[in-house]
């Protein structure tokens, strides 16, 4: 895969994470989460075989589907075409997203130089970006869906980074179990929210 294509993929990856951070529109967020996993799959091909990278893609898509189906069955999905005004919160989060993307872009060379020499700069930018977006999302919101998306984004960033450092089948299996369990917990929280709201 050419370097330009990989750069575009990293940009799409960070953009989808930024959409999840900025925009509060559930269908769009689930779509962005799915897109995030597709980009991770393509980026991770740099350090993993297509078969092993495919596991992450399948798990990611399953996670997105699980969350989508929970939202749909709870009647919480609204049309993606629904137009809403841009809120001040969204402007603030967009600024933060830009800042976080800039930090990851600037910090990647230094990180590559010292603790992670075997990881490519692009991979480090993407993984650091995801970790920062995830951390910010986790730290600023308590709504179950966004919290789970934040956790999944954070973990994806870490998995992307760790994939370039070490490979272990047991660890891959455990991380897969963690991702699926996290989606289950997210669905559980969403259903509980709906149930307690309707009482």
């Amino acid at each position: 895969m050419s370097e330009t294509l990989r750069t575009v993929l990293a940009a799409i990856l960070l953009l989808s994470a930024a959409i999840n951070l900025v925009r509060r529109q559930w269908t769009l967020n689930i779509f962005a989460l799915g897109l995030q996993y597709v980009c991770i799959f393509l980026l991770i091909l740099e350090v993993r075989s297509a078969f092993l990278a495919g596991i992450k893609l399948i798990v990611g898509l399953m996670v997105s589907l699980m969350l989508y189906l929970t939202l749909k069955s709870s009647g919480l999905i609204e049309s993606t075409l629904l137009r809403r005004h841009v809120t001040s919160g969204e402007i603030f989060r967009s600024t933060i997203a830009l800042l976080l993307a800039l930090i990851s872009f600037l910090a990647a060379p230094a990180l590559q130089q010292s603790p992670f020499p075997q990881s490519s700069q692009l991979l480090l930018t993407a993984s650091l970006g995801l970790i920062l977006f995830g951390l910010f999302q986790m730290g600023t919101i308590t709504e179950p869906l966004y919290l789970v998306i934040g956790l999944l984004t954070f973990l994806s960033g870490f998995e992307l980074l760790y994939a370039s450092l070490e490979f272990s089948r047991l660890l891959e299996a455990l991380l897969t179990a963690v991702n699926l369990s996290l989606a289950l917990i997210g669905s559980f929280f969403i259903v509980k929210d709906v149930e307690s709201g309707s009482e």
Binding site: F188, K192, E195, S196
Partner: peptide, 9 residues
């Protein structure tokens, strides 16, 4: 997470 309540902070 307690029964019948939403997940708390």
């Amino acid at each position: 997470t307690p029964r019948g309540k939403q997940a708390g902070s």
